[in-house]
Design a protein around this nucleic acid. Structure first.
Length: 262
DNA sequence: CGTGTTGTTCAGTT
DNA sequence: TAACTGAACAACAC
């Protein structure tokens, strides 16, 4: 689930329910999600602190406090869930922030990623130094320069978090489908118009997805047609193509997205 | 008992 | 060098 739009949703959860609140107690239910920090150290660093305004870069949620910050990454199956007051433990709750008026649960079935502790803004910056510009605020020229400087396939380049931060498998397929670009087109092989169009489709898909806190899967979205085999393209009716591109399960329309462009 | 998965990383190959 | 491939991580669903 968690791509930029989902994480933006988690950021809103943290802003609404965490910001200004005191962390009374930190419970680590599964230390398998802690990265380079022990449960004791994390608890000592965060208990008694108040959450400040949360941030986000790409798929990273930045939980700032009046002291250190906690960085959260949600892998493929994670989420941040708010419970006002008592709630039964979900099987996959891994870390619980007990606040004065409820609790925030870091929940994740698989434990591919997790939580890190950053001592301050400088260390947050250091941890996130490898991330590219955030896809939501990236400029048109910035994207054009990125494309021009790479010979990678579009899907591979857009999946690379050090090139653009926040796009995931679903978002990328959706954007490329709307921009009518084949996933394996070379990044530096796009025309000026194609580049402009890619940018505007990226903006539109992200805007709509952030609003829904997920990539929508309605009838007019490619995302809703990934699973069932042989589904028709929502735009032209051609059966959708599926396969592995850039190492990821990829869906595209062979008619709308010809391999060599128009 | 196989296969696949909305993410990332690393070793190895082209 | 840059780009690409496959495996690994963990916990499921089918």
């Amino acid at each position: 689930m968690p791509e930029l739009p989902d994480v933006e949703g988690f950021r809103r959860v943290l802003a609404e329910h965490g910001q200004g609140r005191r962390i009374e107690r930190l419970r680590v239910l599964d230390e398998g999600v802690l990265r380079e920090v022990s449960p004791r150290k994390l608890a000592a660093a965060l208990e008694g602190r108040r959450f400040a305004e949360p941030g986000r870069l790409g798929k990273w949620l930045i939980g700032r406090t009046d002291g250190p910050a906690v960085l959260l990454h949600f892998g493929m199956t994670g989420g941040l869930v708010w419970h006002p007051e008592p709630a039964e433990r979900h099987r996959h709750d891994r870390v619980v922030f007990q606040l004065d008026d409820g609790e925030l649960c870091y929940r994740d079935m698989r434990k591919l990623q997790g939580l890190r502790l950053a001592d301050g803004d400088a260390e947050v910056d250091r941890f996130l130094a490898g991330e590219g510009p955030d896809a939501l605020t990236m400029g048109r020229r910035q994207l054009a320069e990125l494309l021009d400087g790479s010979r990678k396939q579009l899907k591979a380049l857009l999946s690379d978090q050090s090139a653009v931060a926040g796009l995931g498998n679903l978002t990328i397929d959706e954007i490329l489908w709307r921009a009518r670009l084949h996933p394996t087109r070379r990044a530096d092989g796009l025309s000026g118009d194609e580049t402009k169009n890619l940018y505007s489709q990226m903006r539109w898909v992200l805007r709509e997805s952030v609003r829904a806190a997920r990539v929508p899967d309605g009838p007019s979205w490619l995302t809703g047609h990934r699973e069932r085999p042989g589904e028709p393209c929502p735009r032209c009716g051609t059966p959708l193509s599926k396969g592995r591109r850039a190492g990821r399960g990829t869906v595209w329309c062979s008619r709308c997205q010809p391999p060599e462009g128009p």
